[in-house]
Simulated assay, not measured.
Amino acid sequence: MSVLPLVFTSGWASGVNAYAVVLLLGLFGVTGVSDDVPRALQRPEVLIVAGVLFLCEAAADKVPYVDSVWDSVHTVIRPVAGAWVGALLAGHSGSYSEVTAALIGGSTALASHSVKAGTRMAVNASPEPFSNIALSIGEDLGVGALVSFALFHPRAAAVVAAVLLVAGLATLFFLVSRIRRFLRRRAQRREERGLASRVL
């Protein structure tokens, strides 16, 4: 069976929370829940580092503006993690080119990371902090559920990940266009106020 669906899903999930993906896959492998997890992800030091960084992300991700700074730092980290996990999965299964799997995992992670970072910037415009917390919890639960589902039903999980990615990109496009319109109107109002003050 091709490992491509699992690579695609893990790439999408890595773009949202790479540390959760590595930690979950590693734990599934160590506990014997799945035989599809590469040994490299089951190493104790990998699990410890992934666990600590997951806790750091869980905290940073729920604080307005701190989450956007965290996302900026992870613009490179998440796609690299998606590519690394994809290559490991392909090499472990022996059914897909590691280079191709790395490209798919990395590019999918970059796309989903862009959706996450852009959505967070839009949400940070809201004055209350609860939307950040709700969004962060939803993302963590979604990643956990989809990665778990992907190990046993990779094709179905890949379809869900594709739908989420397309929906996320469409939402991001809508939010960006609205934010641009809002900024243009605000700049126009400032100019009008400036002209009015000069006249007075």
Rank of each mutant, 00 (worst) to 15 (best):
A87C: 08
A125G: 13
V49F: 14
D61P: 03
W84C: 00
D71F: 06
G26W: 00
F28I: 08
R39W: 13
T119K: 09
A196H: 13
F174P: 04
E139N: 14
R43S: 09
F152Q: 15
A157V: 07
A196Y: 14
A18V: 00
V147D: 09
G94S: 08
F8L: 08
A187G: 14
H113P: 04
A156E: 15
F149V: 14
L169R: 05
H153M: 14
R78V: 01
T171H: 07
R190V: 11
S68T: 09
R186P: 02
Y19Q: 09
A122R: 04
V85F: 05
K62Q: 08
V73Q: 06
L165E: 08
E191W: 05
L141R: 14
S136Y: 13
V37S: 12
R190T: 09
V80D: 02
Q42F: 06
A150D: 02
Q188Y: 11
I179M: 13
S197W: 11
V3K: 14
H113R: 01
S97L: 07
F8H: 01
A145M: 15
N132E: 13
N17L: 01
V166N: 08
I77D: 02
T108D: 03
S72F: 11
L53T: 03
H92A: 11
A145Q: 12
T75Q: 06
F8S: 02
R198T: 13
G86F: 00
C56D: 04
S107W: 02
W12A: 00
E192V: 10
E139Y: 12
S34T: 11
V22N: 00
V99E: 05
A109E: 02
S148Q: 06
L110P: 02
C56F: 15
S10Q: 07
L175V: 10
N17S: 10
D67H: 05
Y19G: 02
R185D: 11
K62W: 09
T75K: 05
G32D: 10
L165I: 06
L41G: 11
G86L: 00
S2I: 13
G15P: 00
V143N: 13
L200Y: 10
L89W: 09
V159H: 14
A122P: 05
L200Q: 12
V76A: 13
S136W: 15
V199L: 14
R178C: 02
R178N: 07
A59Q: 07
S68P: 05
S112E: 02
D140E: 15
P154V: 09
R184E: 13
F182K: 10
I77M: 03
G194W: 06
A170T: 11
L25H: 08
A59M: 07
A167H: 04
Y65G: 06
G194V: 05
V16T: 06
D61I: 01
S177W: 05
